[in-house]
Simulated assay, not measured.
Amino acid sequence: MSMQQLLLMGAGHAHAFVLEAFAKQPEPGIAITVVSDSPLAAYSGSVPAWLAGECTLRETQIDIAALCQRANARLILSPANTVNTRERNVALANGERVNFDVVSVNIGSTLASPQQHGENLPMLLAMRPLGSLHQRWQALQNDIRHLPSGGAQRVVGVGGGAAGCETLMSVLAQLRKQRPDIDWQGHLLSASNALLPDAGRLPRWLTRRALSQAGITVHSQQRGETLVEGGVTTQDGKRIDADIVLWATGAVGHPWLVSTELPLDQHGFIRVDNTLEVTGQPNIFAAGDCAAFTPALPNAGVYAVRMGPHLADNLRHACHGEPLRPWQPPKRVLSLIGTGEGRAIASRGGFGVSGKWVWQWKKRIDARFIARFNPPFEN
């Protein structure tokens, strides 16, 4: 059998597990290539701690280059522009084309940007794509350093899911530390009537309490739509005053996927079967936020983490022409939501608990996860 070309597009959480699996159990007959826009990949679970100023950016990152070295994989630092499913190759932004026998896509998601009308718009921080968040956050912090002393600043978070709540509380905690001379006022727009629609009643109550303790006003059934002068408008035309808008809603697939022959759902995510193989596309796989599983899974990094080891096995099977095994998503997952000021909420199904010890527990879990993939000599 000739050498099988396995291509990993993107350096998401699931692909970290794939590289780890091939590092532990090498396959001489499989040549692995990874395409990524960076040698470092952010771990989504640690992002709130970084936004809150409790750890450095580097402490949130997985060293993909070192992981590729361990797995004897070639790393190309260029994002993909498109994938040709018929000719079995991928075109990269650097002009290179990479052929494959088996390919896996783990490129995360992006956000549908808000419409923008007029001048003097609020400062905008979009929370996706994750890979370039540090650049947008740095730019916003630079602008904040130049704000005059005194007065108030209204920070409006758009999105009532776990990411939207967590992001707003973390950012506010950091801004209050960075500029205590400014009165930071928080507001959260949630399109649904309940925060954290996938969580139980107790976790939702704990989250609402945490938002209240952080001085954040919740606006339920208000879908943020358009940035206008001095604020953001909602679906019913109401204007919410804002100086800064954190955009954490409307997850969609990357735009370039539309030009491919990959089957996409209404949000631009790649449809996959329960084996994580793309529907109707043999030897093409997708995992993490960019994959549309049936029934639909929430956009949460924990599912990409759970998919990872199974994806590694099925990619190995595909390279050997062996039958694939179905993946069964967990019915309940543990969700750990940072609430700023060194506290967090643990949620699993209807169970919920909060406290400083939960935050310390979350930080230990996240640090262990990152250390699992990084060289042991790193701090």
Rank of each mutant, 00 (worst) to 15 (best):
Q4A: 04
L6C: 01
L6I: 01
L8D: 01
L8I: 07
H13W: 07
F17R: 10
A23Q: 09
P26N: 04
E27T: 05
G29M: 11
V34K: 02
S36G: 08
D37A: 04
D37Q: 12
L40D: 06
G45N: 13
A52L: 05
G53V: 12
G53P: 01
T60W: 01
T60R: 05
I62N: 05
D63R: 14
I64F: 07
A65I: 12
N72C: 07
R74M: 10
S78K: 09
N81R: 12
N81K: 14
T82Y: 09
R88A: 06
N89Y: 08
V90M: 14
V90A: 15
E96H: 08
N99K: 13
S104L: 07
V105W: 14
G108R: 14
S109R: 11
T110R: 04
T110D: 00
L111K: 11
Q115H: 06
L121W: 14
M123Y: 15
L124E: 07
A126V: 15
A126N: 13
A126D: 09
P129V: 15
L133A: 04
Q135W: 15
Q141S: 02
I144V: 15
H146W: 10
P148K: 05
S149D: 07
R154H: 03
V158A: 03
G161Y: 02
L172E: 02
Q174K: 09
Q178F: 15
R179P: 00
Q185K: 15
N193G: 00
A199D: 09
G200P: 01
W205L: 12
L206K: 10
R208I: 10
T217P: 00
Q222I: 10
L227F: 13
L227H: 10
V232L: 12
Q235K: 13
K238P: 00
D243I: 02
L246K: 09
G250N: 08
G250P: 05
P255E: 08
T260E: 05
I270M: 02
D273Q: 15
Q281P: 00
Q281V: 05
F285E: 02
C290F: 14
C290K: 07
A292F: 15
T294W: 13
L297R: 13
L297T: 13
P298T: 11
N299K: 08
N299I: 14
A300S: 08
V302E: 05
A304E: 03
V305L: 13
V305F: 12
G308D: 08
C319I: 05
W327D: 01
Q328G: 04
P330V: 03
K331R: 14
R332Y: 07
L334I: 09
S335K: 11
G338H: 06
T339D: 00
T339V: 13
R343C: 01
S347H: 02
R348P: 00
G350R: 09
G350M: 08
G352A: 10
G352V: 03
V353C: 05
S354M: 07
V358R: 00
W359F: 10
K362C: 03
A367L: 04
F369D: 00
F369A: 01
F373M: 05
P376C: 04
P376T: 08
N379V: 11
